[in-house]
Design a protein around this nucleic acid. Sequence first.
DNA 1: AGCCAGGACATCG
DNA 2: CGATGTCATGGC
Length: 276
Amino acid sequence: MKIIQEGSAARFSGDEADPQLIFDCGQAFRFSMVRQDVWSGIAHGKKITVSKTDDGFILSPSSQEEVDIWREYFDADFSYSTLSFPDELTAQAKSRCVGLRILKQEKFETIISFIISANNNIARIKKIIEVLCVKCGGKVNDGFAFPTPEQLASLAEADLTTIGAGYRAPYILKTSKMIADGFDLGSDTDDYDVLGERLKLLPGVGPKVADCILLFSYGKKNAFPVDVWIKRVLKDDYGFEYKNSAQTAKFIEENFGQYAGVAQQYLFHAARTNRV
DNA sequence: AGCCAGGACATCG
DNA sequence: CGATGTCATGGC
């Protein structure tokens, strides 16, 4: 995407982008629609507003120094409009998701968010995360930033159960403490498998959550999170019965290739919006 | 009342 | 290994 600074805002244009799809597809939990085609939320400790335009969106406020942060966050250097998939079903799903982009979010926030996502639904995930931020995140304008590992680790387990975290409360605490104590999260350039094994050392992170973290915060577009929705899609539409992770990984690589994660998002969103 | 939700984990055989 | 039961919580 092309990014042009316009006063205290930045105009992103030239590639598919729809805030509605970007923020309401279950990858990010801290944005909400303030009016039609306008979404607002907090990322990187800043409150931003994202307004859809004819050929992209306008992000405000954004200073010249911040442009690279948001360029990366909105995956602006990747072309979704020219991305195509050979198989008909994915192509069809993509046509229903024009403007969906995969955000590259902050690692700790993504890790905790998807630990909370386990056996949970999106509306409730958002609610729990919001209360979590209010409880111990730093103040940002009229809202609260996502907590740091230290802030979250300072909570008591009872604090987390009272906000509805349920049985995930100890996972959240233990993982926060490990990261606050210096657990090595690796870096984006590390190998997909190595990072996955590393992330799964964190309590509450299994195969599916690890894939979400890798796809949504490490930029690993080959990561293909397999949740209950996708299992249904693979079974009903591809005739693929889930048996184990190795067999699934092989099927996914062969059928969806290096951008399997993007295909997964299209299939996930299409499936989720299909059955009312 | 029971099932479901962007599953992980311990405990079996 | 693979299969199975369990784990909070709220919406439907």
